[in-house]
């Protein structure tokens, strides 16, 4: 037995002993949560079997979680509960007196067609269900984005560039409004590639880059903050709920 293998067995023994002791002291579920957290963080050292264990468990558990939630929160009340309510009355009595809606056969049939993807011979028929999904997404998104992200955003950007308040001219608000208005225009100029970015147009595009860089910096800062707050949460769990060092 080489040194590397011996070390890995020693580490395994330590993990198992620590796991058993932790269960005895803190209970099974908290111990599992704590060890899975440590397994994930072990990746900071390098890829290892403990991380792989946690990673594979995460894949299986999350797939089953979303399947279960989808079944009880969507399929039972919205499909079976509307198609033929008595079928699910034993699990959801509130649906018992709902009128049957034969049109719900459409999503049922399309869903079954989608599952045909698992068959190598009849897999092509799943495209029909996929076409429905894609068509619905395209149809809904076209109008939704046109209304809320295009017209509404333009509408919100068209405002007064000379702001006054009770005491007269408001310099701060005026500067802010000018920056917002000019920033949107310059940002859009940067995204417009049908004309070469030269001269005044090029100056607008360069200003657009600055505005976009500030936006990306702000988004980046917020992302890092969100990740750090998750890290703090994990540390609170480890040192508080598990080890009891934070009260």
């Amino acid at each position: 037995m080489n040194a590397g293998k011996l070390l890995s067995y020693i580490i395994l023994a330590i993990v198992v002993i620590a796991f058993v002791v932790s269960i005895a002291l803190k209970g099974f579920l908290v111990t599992v949560g704590a060890f899975l957290t440590l397994f994930i963080f072990s990746f900071l050292y390098k890829d290892n079997p403990y991380y792989k264990f946690a990673e594979h468990l995460f894949v299986g558990a999350s797939a089953a979680y979303w399947m279960s939630m989808g079944f009880w929160k969507t399929m039972v009340p919205n499909l079976f509960g509307k198609l033929y309510p008595p079928m699910v009355a034993w699990a959801v009595p509130a649906l018992k007196n709902n009128p049957a809606q034969p049109l719900m056969l459409i999503p049922l049939v399309l869903g079954i067609l989608l599952l045909m993807r698992l068959s190598s011979k009849a897999g092509w028929i799943s495209r029909w269900a996929l076409a429905f999904i894609v068509g619905t997404t395209a149809g809904l998104n076209l109008v939704r984005y046109l209304r809320s992200d295009f017209i509404q955003q333009i509408n919100n950007t068209v405002f007064s560039l000379y702001v006054t308040n009770a005491s007269g001219f408001d310099l701060g608000a005026t500067i802010s409004n000018v920056i917002i208005f000019g920033g949107v225009i310059c940002g859009l100029i940067y995204f417009f590639f049908s004309k070469e970015h030269k001269g005044a147009f090029g100056a607008g595009a360069r200003t657009g880059i600055i505005v976009l860089m500030i936006t990306f910096g702000a988004s980046f800062g917020y992302t890092v903050m969100a990740r750090i707050s998750l890290l703090v949460g994990r540390m609170q769990f480890l040192f508080g709920d598990w080890l009891g060092m934070i009260r």
Binding site: F150, Q153, I180, F181, G187, Y190, G208
Partner: peptide, 14 residues
């Protein structure tokens, strides 16, 4: 400035 950039991106995405 972040609002201006977000709006330009949102309009572009739309």
């Amino acid at each position: 400035p972040n609002l201006a950039g977000q709006r330009a991106i949102m309009i572009g995405i739309a």
